[in-house]
Write a protein that binds this DNA or RNA. Structure first.
Lengths: 259, 259
DNA sequence: AACCGGCGGTTCAATTAATGAACCAACGCG
DNA sequence: CGCGTTGGTTCATTAATTGAACCGCCGGTT
């Protein structure tokens, strides 16, 4: 891994749960020598990508990323369109909808919407950082990613989050095969207990996934008819989101209903 | 300059006017060898910071920056608060207000608001990339930046944008001295003809400017009373914006009215 | 008060990565 | 068809990065 990629990989350590991280923790979490981490962070800081705060001089993402995002959004309004599509998807299905983008070896939630259709709903507070092998979004992305990326992801330890989590990479591959047939990955309780999710990849201009669009609902509300409805809505949603942001659906992306 | 900073400096080439740039142009604009630029861009691309599009494989900012900005905004809502403050400032002054952040050797507009108070207004379409020496925002930032940064900035060629633009670095320094006395940089027609702007720096947690807050109005509406009103509003605005985003005003930042 | 363990930060010999001139195939233009 | 430009590649040379060991400071414990 080149020096630039190494430095940028440090940015993947920041999350909603951990927006500020000290130097020693950055070194520990990334597996780098503290001197190396220090130097890389200093260079990121010199460009405004990270900054240091507080008496303990912890690092956090800096203002420079806002301007990059604003420039990006000006030409490819992914966040703006995603908010609209996610809102509409939540309204149509009556459940929680969200969109996430690839962040190193995980997915990071970019935007989500709750529905007022029911008194209970799947919440996103503990789901801003999603594991590939254990979420509908993750499986949807892997199903349409390059084999190299899939191999790299499944070569890492696959932790269990619930009693249902599949931690055997062969079983995960079988789930990917199923997702490839229908274009939607279904996931029952792998990441959060009693949550059934449907997710489809969102594609970039190179025809590769850049993230996923998903609907998450409690088991109790999931009938076959509901599942079919959500499946179709997610497919339509990702087609719209991909199209409106200049992405390209792969030629072999399925159009049909679930079998 | 380290490799990481070098790679990130390439991101400064992208602008509202030029959201996509080919490899040879990146090399030409940055002064780097094409092979070097290619390698650095490939590493940025591997982390989703840039992506390639179109038949000519031009580069543009990638989706990875959106998620970084979302994480940053979740803990330090600079963009969200800036939008509010800029909106309020425009309403209060009846003129165009905007906020920009430092981007290498220039300032990049982050958000702006127009007022409906008059039939004519200063527009922002041609002012998303601001020169330090020739804009109120730029002078405001320089006035409260470290001497090293000021020296580095003024050592570069200072192009003229209008007949009023000051291109002599000693004269620019005199303008910085004036801004230090009042906390606000005034700028008459240096960047756009017949536009009078007032700007104040917005400070980060380290007490250094991370950008500027400004009001731009046509000459024709600028009376002494109006100027004093705008001056006070900009000072109040930057105090609020700095405070609400966890920034720290330097101890010597002026509080008084213009002399 | 003394000691300990951890923090952020620094140094420099050894190691590794980056560099860029020269090259390639492809493409559009006259 | 020839030319000039593009995106992309190669590898001997050059430069940057690395990380073990170190530093001062700080908070907690005895």
């Amino acid at each position: 891994m080149g020096t630039v990629a190494k430095a940028l990989s440090l940015l993947n350590l920041f999350s909603m749960e951990q927006p500020e991280i000290g130097l020693s923790d950055v070194a520990r979490l990334s597996g780098m020598n503290k001197a190396t981490a220090y130097r890389l962070l200093s260079e990121l800081q010199s460009q405004g990508i990270v900054e240091q705060v507080g008496p303990d001089r912890a690092y956090r993402l800096g203002p420079g990323v806002l301007r990059l995002a604003a420039l990006r959004e000006a030409s490819v309004p992914l966040l703006t369109v995603a908010r609209e599509v996610v809102r509409a998807l939540s309204d149509e299905t009556g459940e929680t909808a969200h969109m996430s983008v690839i962040r190193g070896t995980r997915l990071s939630a970019l935007t989500y919407a709750y529905s007022q259709a029911h008194a209970t709903r799947v919440t996103m507070e503990n789901a801003t950082d999603l594991a590939f092998h254990a979420t509908g979004s993750g499986l949807a992305v892997l199903a349409f990613s390059d084999p190299g990326f899939v191999n790299e992801t499944l070569a890492q330890p696959l932790p269990a989050y619930t009693e249902e989590t599949v931690t055997d990479s062969a079983a995960v591959r079988a789930a990917l095969d199923a997702a490839r047939l229908t274009g939607v990955a279904e996931c029952r309780g792998l990441f959060e207990a009693e949550v059934h999710s449907h997710a489809a990849p969102v594609f970039g201009p190179d025809g590769k996934p850049l993230g996923a669009l998903a609907v998450a609902a409690p088991y109790a509300r999931m009938t076959n008819a509901t599942a079919a409805h959500i499946h179709a809505a997610v497919i339509a949603g990702t087609r719209e989101l991909t199209h409106r942001t200049g992405g390209a659906l792969p030629a072999d992306y399925p159009t049909g209903a679930p079998t």
